[in-house]
Amino acid sequence: MTRPFRFGVVTPVSTDVAAWRDDVRRVADAGFDTVLVPDVPQWQPSPTALLATAAALADVRVGSWVHATPFRPAWELAWEAHSLTVVTEGRFELGIGTGRPGLEDELASYGMPAVPAGERLDRARETVARLRELDGPSVHTPVVMAVRGPRARALAAEVADTVTIASFATDTRADVVALARSVLDVRDVEIALHVPVVGDEVAPFMASARETDPVALREADSLLVLPGDPAAAVEELLRRREELGATYAVVGLHSVDRLAPVVAELAGR
């Protein structure tokens, strides 16, 4: 069965909360499905507070993009996730991953111990298990996992509803296709793609320095970039669905207006 497209927008608090509320409404009015917020304390308020507020502001799904497991005990993150599912009446999805660049230094700055890679995956598994216990038989909080290595992909294929591949600028299209297919060969899950560059515009909250050269990304046929022309973006997204089953595109706030025609044509299709 071919999955329909949906679209999410990473919507950080870039200036002030009043402007952020306007951004949430603009994302919803443009037809995007999901308002997402990053989990970086230096950037903004807690994701839990922001996501509950976003769900009250607009009729959209909300989610974290993504929680890093070393920062919270499994029971705490599971409790927060289940609570958001309850207060949003089922419109929350938990994004979870094992870390991000500079994680060890960030943990040290908070006086927290380093967490080995294997333990990070164990914590992700425990978080999902505890979340399922809290949800019970009548509730299901969707889990989005950001993965790359074989153990992480195996876990995601086992417990996640949506999987996004943690891609590098050096990855070819064939590389990402192979990684996504290794998950789909185990179980049919939704495949999401993190797209920090649209045309020549880079989402500052979604891309590291190595991902910010649009020309180089296009020359490499990278999946981290979409064409700026809406018709070309539609064609490329259809190609990505055919090649690697990707149907959930996550972009930056800067791309909302440019991609609104794409969303109008493809969302739910």
Rank of each mutant, 00 (worst) to 15 (best):
P4Y: 04
V9N: 02
V9K: 04
T15Q: 13
A18W: 06
A18V: 14
A19F: 05
R25Q: 10
V27D: 06
A28P: 15
D29H: 07
G31A: 08
F32G: 01
D33C: 03
D33L: 02
T34E: 15
V40S: 14
Q44F: 04
P45M: 11
S46I: 02
V66M: 09
V66W: 01
A68Q: 11
E76P: 00
L84F: 05
V86G: 00
V87T: 08
G90C: 11
P101D: 08
P101S: 11
M112E: 12
P113D: 14
P116V: 03
L121F: 04
D122G: 11
A124P: 00
T141N: 12
R153I: 01
L155H: 09
A157W: 02
D161A: 03
I165F: 13
D175G: 02
V186H: 08
E190G: 03
P196R: 02
D200N: 13
V202P: 00
V202N: 03
M206N: 03
D213C: 11
E219A: 15
A220R: 15
D221E: 14
S222G: 02
A231I: 15
V234E: 08
E242F: 05
S255P: 00
D257Q: 14
R258Q: 14
L259I: 06
L259M: 06
V262F: 03
L266P: 07
A267D: 10
